[in-house]
Design a protein around this nucleic acid. Structure first.
Lengths: 212, 212, 212, 212
DNA sequence: GATGAATGAGCATTCATTCAT
DNA sequence: AATGAATGAATGCTCATTCAT
């Protein structure tokens, strides 16, 4: 839409901001830090963004939409519930886990700058429906109320992210692999299905694997 | 002979700092903000703490030890594994949940200022042993490896905290009650026991129920 | 396109800083004092200098180079050793003496912020060579070892500066004129030459006569 | 006069203050630094001294009187002018040189807190009279006016101190030994006498050799 | 008298944002 | 539109001195 040159500046600022916010936090990153990392004059930031808050808001919103759109598209293209579940667990969850610092930022400072409500409810509903369909397909009666189901999803999702992040920062001997294998175990146990083994998440490059 | 160090001042600073850190984050809270809330001159802070970092570190460390010591004492006094599990779920988890903002601070900014490794490992080990004893008592074979077990505990623990925090901040219609009931469901399902119903956590005053 | 760096601001800050440092010392002069004297907001200082140390360092380095370059140029343009000696004694020494407070600052606090080693060795070598050439021209054998010569130069140079400064600050009845006449006496006695009488140094305006 | 215990505290504060002032300068040394080094409560300082200025003033005044009294007594006890000169050069000058940082402090910050006028004039007069007597004894006519003589003394004295101090701090390869040998050379040349060689000044312990 | 906590103005420096160029 | 110097309130922290104990 805009000139190519301009959009690349905007994206450069966004990428560097995201990187620094994830690394040091929102408050510990100055606007001057961001432009230094991307070799642009300060003023430029205010051509593309209203203010510092707008940078974090945009980074979250754009990352999230890209991610969510892709999840939705991929799920729509996948005929079987089990396949959709495999997609979520094997493809999308690792991508989120690879970007754990930034997702955590979304869940902390981000909450002050974006409305995350809709986003979470849509994602929860999507996962919830996959879960329900899978249960139905497997001839199981869901013993959880809708609210319990959504709670379960939230606890597993946020718990996974947080476990990885805290373990990494605190130097615990728990990693992505352990969390992934635990999640698979839970799902395989709950639905009595067998999810295919996939390449370990560690092979996903940290900044390319996820748009969020 | 000189004026004596006034523990109530130290605690006042600590409490106000904890409150503000939880509310706005560490960086967004200035030392002047803290003293303003407790009506003390800036200099006083530096009589009781080395610097701003020392405030957060102390708040975390003291809160954590108080909490952990109490958990340990209560568990030691409780003869049956099921009783210990009930204690954790019905007494200690709600206390943590009541102080969710601050626990989250510990798990984010706090990681840069305290060594949380030991703390988490001790807590994980304690809960792990309760889980194991309960399983043994119930005549069950534990199908999880030790690492899977610790992962499970971390995911449930951190996921519960985070779900409540995010839901609260983002205005989702999920609450402490939902998370508690989910956790009970999981435990009752896993061990085929029935945990007694207790008073809802909401009745616990936010700042008195937990030293953490 | 943006506003350009304003060299006059930089020089204004430098001049005011130099004045205040000389008057009260480095530690007793605050950055706010400096900007107050030159009617600029604090922040501006940090556009032109990295920090307070950088101000004193720059003041010393730039002043010294200006001074030294001029001495060197003038000496190179003067054919006879006696003429070079006269130049040093009658033109450059008075300029240093006129700026005695700041030179003293260089020799005290300055030593902690600049590398003065090179500067002094170059100046010492230059004066030393003038002394040697003059001695040779006058058919005298130098009875001082090189180290004794450099010591002599240092003692006379620093002693002159210090005598004037201390006398002025302590209110003694010794002045620039006395020190100058003593130095001339020593040189005239040592080399059996007669240095021309020049205008008294007091006529040199304190801040214009020397860049140092 | 006061109780032994008290006087030792006062002297301890004075010694530590002198050490720190010489090392870091007056402004860079806090009162709390001083008491920390001597393990005394802050309040004590204000029992013995009116304020921080009073510490430096006292350190200078007491050190100076002790030193001057001793010089005067020793000179009075020494019958020959040459002996008095030897005393000054070989005994008292090295003691001052050993305490060069503090003497320099006297000559810089010290000038703002003490009246040094009298001290310098008395010392100058004493040295001046030794010089005169020695000249008379050697059958020489003094070719310097009284003011020139006092200037000469000041330049040599302050120049020696400063040369050593600057050389030491700037890392030049000039030392006490060089300065001492230069001073002897000048005196021996001027009076055609031979001063006895003495133990090198480096052997004088830095803090015991001088009361100043 | 001895003590050391209390005090708050003052310090060097940063930073989001503006706006002259 | 692009630039980056300008701005000054705000930051974490220090410190000489006082004074309750």
């Amino acid at each position: 839409m805009a000139r190519e040159r301009d959009e690349s500046k905007r994206l450069g600022i966004l990428a560097e901001a995201k990187r620094l916010f994830a690394e040091r936090g929102f408050h510990a990153t100055s606007v001057q830090d961001i432009v230094k990392g991307v070799d642009l004059p300060v003023g430029t930031v205010y051509t593309y963004f209203q203010n510092k808050d707008d940078i974090i808001r945009t980074a979250i919103d754009e990352g999230w939409s890209q991610f969510y759109d892709e999840v939705e598209r991929a799920c729509a293209a996948e005929p079987s519930p089990a396949g959709r579940m495999a997609l979520i667990v094997d493809s999308f969850l690792p991508r989120l886990l690879a970007d754990v610092e930034f997702i955590s930022l979304i869940m902390s400072d981000g909450l002050r700058y974006t409305d995350i409500n809709d986003k979470l409810e849509r994602l929860g509903a999507l996962i919830g429906s996959v879960v329900n369909e899978l249960a139905r397909e497997r001839g199981m009666t869901v013993s959880l109320s809708p609210k319990q189901a959504i709670t379960a999803i939230a606890v597993f999702f946020l718990g996974s992210m947080d476990t990885i992040r805290v373990a990494r920062m605190a130097g615990l001997s728990l990693g992505e692999r352990d969390v992934m294998s635990f999640i698979r175990l839970v799902i395989e146990g709950a639905f009595r299905i067998s999810l295919p083994k996939v390449a370990p998440a560690e092979s996903v490059p940290p900044d390319a694997g996820s748009g969020s």
